[in-house]
Design a protein around this nucleic acid. Structure first.
Lengths: 221, 221
DNA sequence: TATCTTACTGACCAGTCAGTCAGTAATGGA
DNA sequence: TCCATTACTGACTGACTGGTCAGTAAGATA
């Protein structure tokens, strides 16, 4: 009779899959509870293992956090850079494409977690901060700068764009996204994601000033 | 001989000053360490009292945090509203004035702490979150909306400004400020505060698109 | 000076959690 | 089927901290 004598496998040995699973779990749990408030017990449970296992793959809670940030940040930038390299068309078109792509990426649940974490926990981690500055922010700004420089050279953009786009466009989008994640539930007339990206493009390209008609046909936002 | 028998007053009784001092200390310490990472011992020491004293004036760590947020947020909005009421001139002038004033206010050290805290800790405090949404964000947006509506009516602003200014201008400024606080030290060519506000105004009013001068040439798409 | 009130202190308690490690069980090889 | 290897478990520990409270001393009153 098999009733009492079920050995019932308690776990599976899958050393190759564990690190990945732990990093994913870490993103979820850190993302919704913050670094300090998360216990490794929770992360372990979310990854389907016990706490001890975490320490087989990561030296400490810090180390886990650091690895998680690095993992989730590389891909996006590389995609963006590839897109820029392959693009044929006006700089304005390229910039618009990049803004739309970034907006789409930011609205993903994991990216919401990620940006929240980076904004709130980075001050506590000077090392990660430095890494982030050099390998994410500077790199992203460089990418935007080359696009803008091309656009200025071709006469599409004003020279002021150089001081505007690389710093301000990312800030604008990150914070709008942050506010949406934080207060979206409380705001019954929050604009849709689609409406909001159109407004962003409208602001970035044309600003708010009303202009005398000037008979020129501008692209509409 | 007075050598051994110095009683040396250990503390002073100043019940009226304590709450204020504790709130200031709380802002400083919470601001640089985050909510979870700060101990009440630290806050107490920063205020020059012992831990027990904190509990004479605030019911809990939560309560202290909540009181600190409320204290530091009311003043600014009221000032901004007063400025708007008293203004005589174009809407564009008023908006520019408001942007400059907000930028100046944000760059104060206490405000840097405050905005960092709000952005990172609010998700953990649903009650404060709701309070903040209703009494800070909505109120601020309403103020900006009335300015923009006036500007659209007078023909100064495009109608799109209504979907742009109330949400995007604050987001832009808050996040730029956040980035400056976080990475300013690492960035040797960070623009000055003055240069940056000019860029903000340039973006908000005119965008980045190069425009053909008046009615002469029209090309571009 | 003696007495009273109460602002303030700091040792203490109970709960929490990062990190450890002795032991257990999954798996591959003989 | 037994053995060797090692991925994995989970009870445990030591350090820490939010919150308490019995006691201390500042200052007021007379």
């Amino acid at each position: 009779m098999p009733g009492t004598s079920k050995p019932a496998r308690r776990f599976r040995r899958r050393p190759e899959a564990r690190p990945e699973e732990l990093l994913d779990a870490a993103l979820t749990v850190f993302g919704e509870r913050g670094y300090r408030a998360t216990t490794l017990e929770e992360v372990a449970r979310a990854a389907g293992v016990s706490k001890g296992t975490v320490y087989l793959y990561f030296a400490s809670k810090d180390d886990l956090f650091r690895a998680m940030v690095e993992k989730n940040v590389i891909g996006m930038l590389e995609m963006a850079e590839a897109r820029a390299r392959e693009h044929t068309g006006t700089s304005a078109d390229l910039l618009e494409t990049m803004i739309r792509a970034m907006w789409r990426a930011l609205s993903q649940a994991e990216m919401v977690c990620m940006t929240r974490l980076v904004q709130s926990e980075l001050p506590q981690f000077p090392e990660i901060q430095r890494y982030y500055w050099e390998n994410v922010i500077q790199r992203h700004r460089r990418l935007l700068r080359t696009i803008v420089e091309r656009g200025i050279a071709s006469g599409e953009f004003r020279p002021e764009a150089l001081a505007i786009v690389p710093t301000m466009v990312p800030s604008l989008m990150l914070h709008l996204n942050h506010v949406r994640a934080l207060f979206g539930g409380l705001d019954p007339d929050a604009p849709t994601l689609e409406a909001q990206v159109e407004s962003i493009l409208s602001l970035v390209f044309d600003g708010i000033r009303n202009r005398p008609i000037a008979a020129s046909k501008q692209k509409k936002g």
